[in-house]
Design a protein around this nucleic acid. Structure first.
Length: 637
RNA sequence: GCCGCCGUGGCUCAGCUGGCAGAGCGGGUGACUUGUAAUCACCAGGUCGCGGGUUCAAAUCCCGCCGGCGGCUCCA
């Protein structure tokens, strides 16, 4: 942290105020007033007995307010409904807290609580008296519960931000390939069906489907990944095939970023919740974090690499000669506690892997130049992975001011893909960025998900104290670009699987790109007699740098062919008497076959290897992550 | 998070007006030795998601929880 800048940051602690409740569902509750204390509120009764009642022993703490009371009432109402209690008794009980509010406040808030619960028959025992009581707890599972009702500053900040976000007005346009900005209602979507779906999803948010997403079925059936119910929702297990696919994608994406000029780093996955800089960044976003309790401090799990990388940059000495400066990290994992109802398969997870590159740019001109380069890099990366421009739609989110000042630049983006772009324009800036693009994949159920994205951040350099020394010797705040060149790796896998579903709908056979296929060649000996020969051929293919396995199981040829096909294996090589004589293999090529007709060729092992090597050129390679012989291979489901 | 639907061998599902837990696939064993989408026979395998309740009796009815799917909301 730069000493000159630290003074600008202020430190605000949570004060830890909570209203404490102990809830007892009782057959009856009976109390008798004995003696006044100094704090007693006026009361002239002797006590009372209430049958079938939910008793709320309550402590009011310092800092509690009417907002807390409302939430406390909500919590009591919630429990009362669950246990089917029609009567509630509020019983002031100081012993639940060591941080009590003053008596006057406490009485006021207890009265408010009573009023908030007027939909029940409410009894309130008097505050500040010594009382004797008898209670008969019902003893069922929900009959004894405690609640802490938080009145954290954070909740209020978040609410205020939510309100502000609601006030941001969005205007929607389509930027045509001819660089016309057309209001979205006036755009003719004929010939742009996918864009229509995306726009509909973004603006109308109307969807009506009632099937399991195709990729969820595929990820299970192909033993790529599956839910892990012993973990939190949205945390997934990857079987060997899934892990291989993910490894290859991760390696490829990382290499592309490094080749682009980024320096790979690694930063921690958890950070102090009360760290002054981070805390203010967190507060800007309503989504919940995972919280981990340390020895003394509380930590949140990162939702991206921003924290670690920005802290690193703020401690670095950077000059104008170093710019643009790029650092990169593959976050395994980033954590976002997304709403439960939103979690589906590989599409949205609570723990995911994301390439996260940050670029420090000298000025807006350099930032825009980088933005443009990274836009093209993203197109290239997705394309080489197997997700083509026709598979996604471009969205640009931009503030009105920034658009007005940089019209030509924004319009130039349309030249890259030469297809219409959805533009969301905000009347003022709410987020930390002035410009952002996303590539949105539209799936088999017409749902859209963002893959690649780049943003120009105009706020965090100052917040984190990231500066560079300019040619005149003065410290300046740079602009920072956030780039996820492919989006989450899991989401890339989701897109590839959904794309396979599209292939099937078109009458083709679904498959993954050959470089990502766990088994690239399966050798099937016609009968046991040919297993040795099959092993020899497989060894030759393997030496060529291809993932190959051998189906040596005691099954009919037909059965084994069929199994290879249901595994989406790109090349199925059969070996029998005929092949031994000719020295060639009979190979079924999946990509050239259709559901009606198989494409079969006769090639030597060498020719097959050459073909595969050519298809996978420039892509990472990992050996087969499973036993080579099918007969020795376990099934993971 | 809210609303709705679902949860039965490893997988896909039947059984659900309460009355002995089933099938196919997969797995094991054996026979067969295979030429491009499922060879035959036998065997093993289940706290019916978990916890309560109603009942002589619960996979089946009721309540709560957990998990999944869909919708809403959200998505730095």
């Amino acid at each position: 942290m730069h000493p000159t800048l630290i003074g600008k940051l202020y430190y605000s602690h949570l004060n830890g105020s909570f209203m404490k409740l102990l809830l007892i569902h009782a057959d009856y509750m009976e109390y008798e007033v004995k003696k006044k204390t100094k704090l007693a509120e006026p009361f002239d009764g002797k006590g009372e007995r209430v049958e079938e009642v939910l008793v709320a022993f309550t402590s009011v703490e310092k800092g509690d307010n009417e907002d807390v009371v409302k939430r406390a009432a909500e919590a009591i109402r919630d429990v009362a409904k669950k246990v089917n209690a029609e009567r509630v008794m509020i019983y002031p009980y100081a012993h639940l807290s060591s941080n009590l509010a003053d008596a006057e406040t406490a009485v006021n808030l207890l009265k408010r609580l009573e009023a908030e619960l007027s939909d029940f028959e409410v009894h309130r025992s008097p505050f500040g008296w010594y009382k004797a009581f008898k209670i008969s707890c019902k003893g069922h599972p929900l009959s004894e519960l405690s609640r802490e009702i938080g009145g954290e500053a954070e909740a209020e900040v978040t609410q205020a931000l939510r309100d502000e976000e609601e006030r941001v007005v969005s205007y929607w346009y389509i930027l045509t390939p001819e660089k016309q900005l057309v209001e979205v209602e006036k755009f003719d979507f004929t010939g742009y069906e996918n864009l229509r779906k995306f726009v509909n999803y973004e603006i109308a948010k109307r969807r009506a489907v009632d099937v399991v997403p195709p990729h969820v079925e595929y990820m299970k059936r192909l033993e790529i990944a599956d839910y892990e119910s012993a973990s939190d929702s949205g945390h997934i297990r990857y079987y060997p095939k899934g892990r291989l696919i993910k490894t290859l994608l991760e390696q490829y994406i990382t290499r592309k970023c490094i080749e682009y000029g980024a320096m790979e780093v690694e930063t921690p996955i958890m950070y102090d919740r009360n760290h002054p800089t981070l805390r203010r960044y967190l507060e800007r976003f309503p989504a919940r974090q995972y919280i981990i309790k340390g020895d003394k401090r509380e930590f949140f799990l990162r939702f991206a690499a921003c924290f670690g990388q920005f802290l690193m940059l703020s401690n670095s000495t950077i000059t104008y000669r170093n710019l643009p400066l790029k650092i990169y990290e593959l976050t395994r994992y980033s954590f976002r506690k997304e709403q439960r109802g939103e979690l589906v398969g590989l599409r949205r997870l609570r723990a995911f892997t994301m390439p996260d590159m940050h670029t420090v740019a000298k000025d807006m001109e350099q930032a825009m130049q980088e933005f443009f380069n990274q836009y093209r890099l993203s197109v290239e990366v997705l394309n080489e992975i197997g997700i083509e421009a026709k598979d996604y739609e471009v969205a640009i989110r931009i503030t009105k001011d920034f658009y007005e000042e940089n019209k030509d630049f924004v319009h130039s983006l349309v030249d890259v893909l030469k297809k219409p772009i959805l533009i969301e324009m905000w009347d003022h800036r709410f987020f930390y960025f002035v410009l952002k693009f996303e590539f949105n994949f539209v799936d088999a159920l017409d749902k859209a998900s963002a893959l690649s994205t780049v943003q120009i951040d105009v706020e965090n350099a100052e917040r984190y104290g990231i500066t560079y020394v300019d040619a005149d010797g003065k410290e300046r705040y740079p602009y920072i670009l956030h780039c996820s060149v492919s989006g989450a790796v899991e989401r890339v896998m989701y897109a590839l699987l959904e794309k396979a579903k599209f292939m099937m709908d078109e009458g083709k056979l679904p498959m993954l790109p050959v470089w990502l296929s766990p088994t690239q060649v399966r050798v099937i000996p016609v009968s046991e007699k040919f297993v040795d020969a099959a092993v020899k051929v497989a060894e030759e293919i393997e030496r060529g740098g291809v993932r190959v396995d051998i189906d040596d199981r005691n099954e009919t040829l037909g059965k084994r062919i069929r199994d290879a096909q249901t595994e989406w294996i790109p090349y199925i090589a059969v070996l029998g008497e005929k092949e031994l004589e000719s020295g060639k293999l009979t190979v079924t090529i999946r990509s050239e076959s259709t559901q009606k007709e198989q494409k079969r060729v006769e090639v030597t092992a060498k020719e097959l290897v050459e073909r595969i090597k050519k298809e996978c050129e420039g892509k990472p390679f990992m050996p087969l992550p499973l036993p080579k012989f099918l007969s020795t291979r376990p099934s993971f489901r």
